[in-house]
Structure formats: C-alpha cells, structure tokens
Design a protein around this nucleic acid. Structure first.
Lengths: 334, 334
DNA sequence: CTGTTAGCGCGTTCAG
DNA sequence: CTGAACGCGCTAACAG
C-alpha cells in the first residue's frame, strides 16, 4: 500500500484535500502555481492515488476481465496480447481467469465478477453444455460482456469470431484438391458454435466435391479425456487419407498418435488444422494450417468493450467476423 | 456494479448493516437463525460484496500482478498457468502486465503498482540494462516482489529460477557427444543473469570436453531487432556443426534461416534449445530440447508470494532453483 | 481559485 | 446477540 495518501500530502502543503485532488484532475480551477507545487511535492513523496478508493467513488475499476478456457493455447495467448495492448493504451488493467474448460468454474467466475471488481468481461466459452441460460442471467446486470472466438449463438451479446465455416470449407477443399478421398474431422463439443461451424464447412466442402459425408469420420473429442484413444481408433479402423482438425490441440495429439502408429505424414495421411502455433507452417512438415487472426480478434474484442463502456446502454447486438488465413504447405499439396 | 449493496440488503431484512456484514465474516456473534435468514436473502438478491470497498478497509486487494516481458512465449504461458492455479486456490486475482521487453514500460508498471492495486508482484525482467537500481527503490516499499526466471542477481529479493548453468552444460555436452566440434550459441541480453548462466554452462561444457571457446560463435541477439541476419551470418561464415540456443524464439528463427539457406537439420547442423513448445520433441525433428519446469516455477513463485503475504516482513532472501529437463532426440544423437 | 462537506460500500470497535 | 458510529482514501458538489 502506498504509504502516503491524499490527506497527508495535503497537510504537508497546507492545502485542503480537495484542492490537491483537483490538481490531479481538473487542470482548470486550480492556479498553475499551486498545481505545480502540488505535483512536485507529490512526485517527491511518490504519492500514488489509491485506485480503489477512487473507484469506489466513481464506480469504475479501470479493469477488465478475460475469462478463457485455457491459456496453454496459442490462440488465446495471442488474443490476450491483443486485448492487453488495447487495454494498456486505454489505461486499463487486465485480469485473467482460466476456467480449464470447467463450466461450473466459468459460471462461478461470471457470477463473482458481478461484484464490481471489473468494468467489463471478455469471455470465451468453455466446451460445456449450453451457456445460454446462464449468460442471460448476466445480461440483466449492467456489466458489459463481449464474447470472442468460442461464442454462443443463442445469447444476445456482442460477438467476435472468425469465419469458421468458410475457413473450414477452404481447408477441407485443400485436402480434396490434394487428392484425399476419405477425410476425417476432429472437433470439440457439439455445443460450441465454433465446433458446429467448422463441421459445417467440412460438410459443405465434401458435398460440393461430390464426396459422401460419413458420420463415423467425425470424432467429437470433448466427451472423454482420452482423445488419443479415439484418434487411434479412427486412424486404425477407418484409415482416412486426410484429416481436418478443428483445433490445434487435437492436431498435435494426432501427430503423436501417428508417430506411434507409424503413420507417415503427409504420405499416409494429409493433415490440416486450425492452429496458431508460432511458425506452424515451418515446424510441422506436411501440415497446412488455418491461422486465426487471434491478435486481431483480441484487439477488436477489447475495442468493442471500450466502446460499450462509453456508450453505456446502446447495446446493439452485432457479430463481427474476421477472416482466418489459410497457409498451404507444399508437401500436403501434392 | 452489483446493484444491491449491504445497506439495501440490511434494510430488506430490517437489520443493521453491521449485523449483516458480520453474518458473512464472524460466524459467531450472530445467531444461527438470523445468519441463515441473511444468507438466504443475500443469495436471492444475488448480493455480492464490493471487494474494493472491503479492501479499502482491510488494506488488501486480493490481487497479484504478473509483470512479464511477453506472453507469446510458452515458458511464460505455462508459468502463468501455475501462478493462476495457486492464486485461484487462494481466492486471489491475477493481473497481467506485458512489458514487451521495454524496460521503461517495466519501470512504469512497477512504479504504478505501488498504489495499492495489488498486494504483491511477480516479476520476470525485460532484457534491458541493469535493473538493480530501479528494483532497490521498490524494495523500500512494503509491497512484496518475487522474481522468477529472468532474475537479477544484484537485487535482494526472492528469486525462482531453473538450473541454467547445469542444464546448459548438459545440453552442450549432448551436442558434443553427438559429434559436434564447432558449436555455436545464441543468447539474449548480457545483462540478464539467465543469459550469462546459460553461456557459462556452454563454456564449461566446451572446456571439459577440451574444445576451445570462440567468442565469434556466440551471438547476442538482444541488441538488434533483426536477429535473422545475425544468424545467417553465423551459419554462412562460420558453418558450425552444432548450435545451442538459450531461448526458444531464437531456435525457431534458426529453423527459418536453415530452411532458407538449405541447411539440413540435423545432418548439417545439430540443434538444441531451451524450449517449452508443446510436444517440442515431437514437432521439431532433430531438435533436442531443454524443457524448463515452467508451470512449477510459476507455482512456486506464487506460493512464495503468499507466504510473504502471511509473514509480512520476514523477507529472508533466498533463491529457489528447480531443475530443467533434458529431452534427447535420437536424430540429434547420432 | 480554494475549502468544507458528504458520501462511495464495507469492516470494526464499542455500547447496549 | 444486535446496532450506531466512525473511517478506509478519494471524488464531487457546493460554498465562499
């Protein structure tokens, strides 16, 4: 705790608290001379106004919360980067809450954060069941929420996402063009819009290419914790020649499985995945990737938050979509 | 802001504020009956005590700050994970501040954070010049600081790090055992203890193996932003057969350069690096890695913070070292 | 231009 | 067992 406070500083200067206080805010209303004097002494004593006391008065914490499923995920890392950049520019502070894909924890956070600790919440949903109900509760309060990436279509809130359907369509088409006839798809929870959209893009691409959609080629990896087994099953029993993973983590697990099973990438299996691994296109031989504009999404989401904080109330619902980037890898392509 | 406050809740119940307040803290001193009544009604109205008002009274924010150079770095991500885990368990909140390797920004944060916004600071230094002076200033205040990973030997504070010298020794020795005769080393700022230690381990390994240390084989990548050029120079002019990178980012850049220059890893160049990339040993063919116990370091650092917060004042300086893990890659090894 | 006063929402003596 | 009253550090009328 800052040891010197407003009262002490005022006494030092033989001024009243309000005068000193105003010297920091209203540049007018205070003579330049005394203002100078106050600021100098304040610097000397290293006076730091207590933000919470100020916030108590102004009803603002200058803080936003970022609630995300996990942080060991390059998408979220880059998103945080974007968020933090914007927040820093606005003089705001960023709190991080990790739900670890635990929906009850997510709910607890959101509930708790209604207490005024933060002015707004940036939320990316955990892969649990429908969040609509719980989010509607929060909509009633006046604390703004912006959903990003892992959104829920049912909820009326601002949403920032990427073009999941289109990107998935392109990714799947990429595999088809590379000669794949039997393309598997790895996905997370069916309850997430993001999963459904990616599945949808995959389906459409198959359809447009005249390939049949087979349900058994789609593996939902959210239910069990042991996704590896599911992937092993998929590869061994169905022997797909292409695989489109909707999520980086699942692609990485696929790599591991392939190594174990002696499945050669890209000869035996061509792989493409959503991923924000640093220079993924370099490190992953044979892996084409769909790179989400994570930093941008974070940035835009944060900007929306600050817009909302200014125009409190004008909560026109809108969804912003920022396209992803498909990076093709030669070795997959032939 | 939580719409219902203590006063309103008290009025609802025909009780005084203090009674209600005590119902939440002192389980004694309040009859079980009224306590029950209060808690139920509180839940109904979704009463959330304002943490800042409470903190104003108790002089605690229940918040810790994590000040780090960057977040697009797997070490820091995992460290945050560890920190957040511990903090969450303690009911604490975590604020993130990214200095982007900008020392003036770092200083500004540390300065600013003296205002009571956080109870303690977890700090990993940016790669600037000596931090000793600036940190000593902060030592005078009563806000605890724990340094982790990127520490400064000059400062009297608790420090959590890994066994940089030993790990680097092992890593370099690994290259030597793989037959390398001319081993380069990539490092960051000389001002960071971590860089020096890693360099030191490298030197010792060379010495013990009877290899001469050559200054030109060591590239300090902190000064210029275009590290790639430096690496290109190194590889083209000196043609090392082994390379030990002290930092993940530099190893990744080396990969890129090698691809451009058509240098084959591991045939032409054997590579080993500190890295916390997810399953780095899988994704990076030919790359042996030194994996830092990032999560553990974060956890221990956070635990130290909470110990400090309890035993305020007893700031016995100590350094905790947690060993890294060397993962050898067959392809490097022969 | 400066000072007085009254809260922001909560915790905490101290009476009763 | 309960309530009245004060103060945490600061802002914002309102006076002067």
């Amino acid at each position: 705790m800052s040891t010197v406070n407003l009262k002490q500083l005022a006494k030092e200067l033989n001024l009243s608290v309000s005068t000193v206080s105003k010297a920091f805010k209203n540049s007018y209303d205070i003579s330049e001379a005394t203002r100078e004097r106050i600021l100098t002494r304040a610097k000397q004593l290293n006076y730091q106004p207590n933000p919470y006391a100020a916030g108590l008065r102004t009803q603002r914490s200058q803080t936003i919360a970022v609630v995300i499923p996990e942080i060991a995920n390059n998408f979220f890392v880059q998103a945080i980067n974007g968020i933090e950049t914007v927040a820093q520019g606005m003089g705001y502070h960023v709190m991080i809450y990790l739900t670890h894909e635990d929906q009850s924890k997510e709910q607890a956070f959101l509930q708790h954060l209604q207490n005024g600790r933060v002015d707004a919440i940036l939320l990316s949903l955990s892969s649990g069941k429908d969040h609509a109900q719980q989010l509607k509760e929060l909509q009633k309060r006046d604390i703004p929420i912006v959903l990003f990436d892992r959104i829920d279509t049912q909820v009326d809130a601002i949403k920032i996402q990427t073009d999941n359907i289109e990107s998935s369509y392109k990714a799947t088409t990429h595999l088809i063009e590379a000669g794949c006839k039997k393309i598997a798809h790895l996905t997370l929870s069916e309850k997430l819009a993001i999963s459904n959209d990616r599945l949808e893009g995959y389906k459409r691409a198959l359809k447009d290419a005249g390939l049949k959609f087979k349900k058994e080629l789609v593996v939902d990896c959210s239910l069990t914790k042991n996704n590896e087994d599911q992937i092993v099953q998929l590869l061994q029993k169905l022997r797909p020649d292409g695989l489109f993973s909707g999520f980086e983590k699942l692609a990485l697990q696929t790599y591991q499985v392939c190594e174990k099973l002696n499945v050669n990438i890209p000869n035996d299996l061509k792989l493409i995945s959503f991923s924000n691994l640093p220079i993924a296109e370099l490190l992953n031989p044979g892996l084409s990737v769909v790179v989400q504009p994570a930093f941008e999404i974070g940035k835009v989401a944060a900007e929306m938050i600050f817009e909302l904080l200014k125009i409190k109330g004008s909560n026109r619902i809108k969804t912003i979509t920022i396209p992803s980037h498909l990076i093709k890898r030669k070795s997959t392509g032939n």
